[in-house]
Write a protein that binds this DNA or RNA. Structure first.
Length: 365
DNA sequence: AATGTACGCAACCGCTCAGCA
DNA sequence: CTGCTGAGCGGTTGCGTACAT
């Protein structure tokens, strides 16, 4: 049994609002307010609109002091950093940008900002993948799993880019500082949407040591120009490290299909099982960035270093120590706030200001 | 000039959550 | 405690417009 509709769909007008409808709605709300009941409102003023539609129209368009378009550089920065920190929680992001609506920010992000920062390559990959995948079940499965991983990867990529902008000499811009596994891992990050590379990764993991097969697959994945034979020497413990690292990375990314099979990564890799489990029965994507960032910090960057040495190993995280703390704090703060209130409008200016000081320290572009 | 394609934005849909009886 | 209802949210869709061929 489905849920009862909020209004009589047959007698409700849909589509763009006319100036007359706008005027009616605006005049009424400005004089009487919403009355706390959006559903009843259209009937009161003789509008053949759904209450939800009225609410949306008011909030996104008619409300006083609404700004449209013309996003400033500062607003871009705020949106980017908050997206990285908390994901697509547009209402929370909108609450930090006076005059902006969640819808506006969401559209702006999807149509411009994301492209500006990430480019279009990945999107075209996704489209290609979707069109090439004929099996409908596979499409459904891959798209649902990608919903999480794409968001995570986007945020990860943005995080890297912001870090690069903040400090051009930092880890990410300095190949000399990269761990040995970086070409492989980076390749996987960039190509994790690509089925063929997933297959190759699976083949790599399944192939036996020492017969050259691993070498071939590695070459296909990374290209011979990046090949470091030292990784793949028979009995070289680095091969195991490579495998473990691959498994660890894969296990945190549901877009890599073999994670869901029997070839599950060693639990000692610290996989994000908890976060996945927290994703509720309705398949809500995991939207908190903190576990992903933590995982990235503790797993995805790990090459040949022990867990305890990982932070020390990467300059970027030395630089970022404060940032990371801020992010964790931010994330917790957001969780608390969003749990107790649907809006941050009640947040004191002082607190907000303090938070942005923190945040600006971390991500000033 | 005509047609096709890409893009941006407004609006809708369906879900979850919170408040209330 | 439970079920119902409305509010709010994020994802998606559809349409108008700009741009390319």
């Amino acid at each position: 049994m489905g849920r009862a509709p909020c209004c009589d769909k047959a007698n409700v007008k849909k589509g763009p609002w006319s100036p007359e409808e706008d005027a009616k709605l605006k005049a009424y709300i400005e004089e009487y307010g919403t009355g706390g009941n959006w559903i009843a409102l259209p009937q009161k003023i003789g509008l053949k609109r759904c209450g939800k539609s009225c609410r949306l129209r008011w909030l996104n368009y008619l409300r006083p002091n609404i700004k449209h378009g013309g996003f400033s550089e500062e607003e871009d920065n705020i949106i980017c950093s908050l997206y990285i920190s908390i994901g697509s929680r547009w209402s929370i992001i909108a609450a930090q940008l006076p005059g902006r609506t969640d819808n506006d920010i969401k559209n702006y992000w999807n149509t411009r900002l994301k492209k500006k920062l990430l480019g279009r390559r990945k999107q075209s990959n996704i489209n290609r993948l979707s069109s090439e995948t004929s099996d409908s079940n596979r499409v459904e499965e891959s798209s649902s799993s990608m919903a999480l991983s794409q968001s995570a990867l986007e945020r990860l990529q943005l995080h890297i880019q912001l870090q690069s902008l903040q400090n051009p000499f930092s880890f990410y811009n300095n190949p000399a500082l990269w761990p040995k596994l970086h070409p492989f891992q980076e390749k996987m990050l960039l190509q994790s949407m690509n089925e063929s590379s997933n297959t190759l990764m699976q083949q790599f993991l399944n192939s036996p040591h020492g017969n050259g097969q691993k070498l071939d697959i590695y070459e296909q994945l990374c290209g011979s120009d990046t090949l470091d034979q030292d990784y793949l020497k028979f009995d070289n413990p680095k091969v195991d490290c490579l495998e473990n690292s691959l498994k660890g990375l894969a296990s945190t990314d549901s877009s890599i299909p073999f994670v869901n099979g029997n070839n599950v990564a060693d639990s000692s890799m610290g996989v994000r099982v908890d976060a996945v489990e927290q994703s509720d029965a309705a398949n809500q994507p995991v939207s908190t960035f903190q576990p992903e960032l933590e995982n990235f910090i503790s797993n995805k960057t790990s090459g040949f270093v022990s867990q305890q040495d990982q932070f020390a190993e990467f300059d970027c995280f030395k630089e970022m120590n404060a940032s990371k703390d801020s992010l964790i704090w931010w994330s917790n703060e957001f969780e608390t706030k969003s749990a107790s209130s649907t809006s941050w409008e009640s947040t004191s200016a002082l607190q907000t200001e303090g938070m942005f000081q923190d945040y600006e320290l971390s991500y000033n572009m």
